[in-house]
Design a protein around this nucleic acid. Structure first.
Lengths: 113, 113
DNA sequence: CAAATATACATAAGAAAATTATGTATAAAC
DNA sequence: GTTTATACATAATTTTCTTATGTATATTTG
């Protein structure tokens, strides 16, 4: 099962930023990692990913370093200090939103993992 | 605090359908109810609401009855059988998505309410 | 070793879904 | 009588994603 695309809308930036927490990553790596972590339920397409990364960079939330692996280019993204602050905001807003939705839709939160 | 609009995208139809579970409601009533239930955190604008309701009707998920209260029109929306099935799908997909996001973003689910 | 698949970036056209603005009109409150 | 609330609706614009396309290297597989 893959989530309907409309569900993922609005959370993509948060997902991407969160992946960069702790270590730099390159675009393709992010898509693979998210796919793996979610058991294929979230598959970020390139058409969605790259514009998002570019927007994050334009907003000063991430910085980039380009490297060559053999002849192939690889662009690493790292969180900026501004980006670190932004993650916290985004994640806590989403956590709040999730609680609201669970209440509104009568969803019982899964008990302790 | 009001949630950033991008967060609500993708959940609006589900929210609206869920409100209709149990009783018919009219558009304005839905916005007020959701606002009240969420402590003003979710404010559905008319520009978002009416196109959504019309789309739900076009998809056969809701049926309508128009009534006059004095001279003022009021359009009640009710769930169709197809709509009832759709809610279950939508809500369970969202419940699943929430769990995935909690894991991906390292959000601790709130323990029993 | 040729073909298919995976890796890795990017952009452009189009679609979907909301925001913002605008319009109409009645009812209630101040 | 003016403002606010109720109640519908649509159009222009913006945002954001999908789908399609493009380029290129590296690896796997038959």
């Amino acid at each position: 099962m893959i989530y309907s695309s409309e569900l993922i809308k609005g959370t993509l930036k948060t997902i991407v930023l969160k992946q960069l927490e702790g270590q730099r990553m390159y675009g393709y790596e992010i898509t693979q990692r998210v796919k793996e972590l979610t058991g294929n339920k979230i598959q970020i397409t390139e058409g969605a990913l790259y514009p998002t990364l570019h927007a994050l960079e334009a907003d000063g939330l991430v910085t980039t370093e380009t490297e060559f692996i053999g002849k192939r280019i690889r662009k690493y993204y790292s969180l900026s200090p501004k980006g670190k602050t932004k993650i916290e905001e985004k994640v806590s807003e989403l956590a709040d939103f999730i609680q609201t939705m669970q209440f509104l839709l009568d969803i019982k939160p899964a008990m302790g993992q």
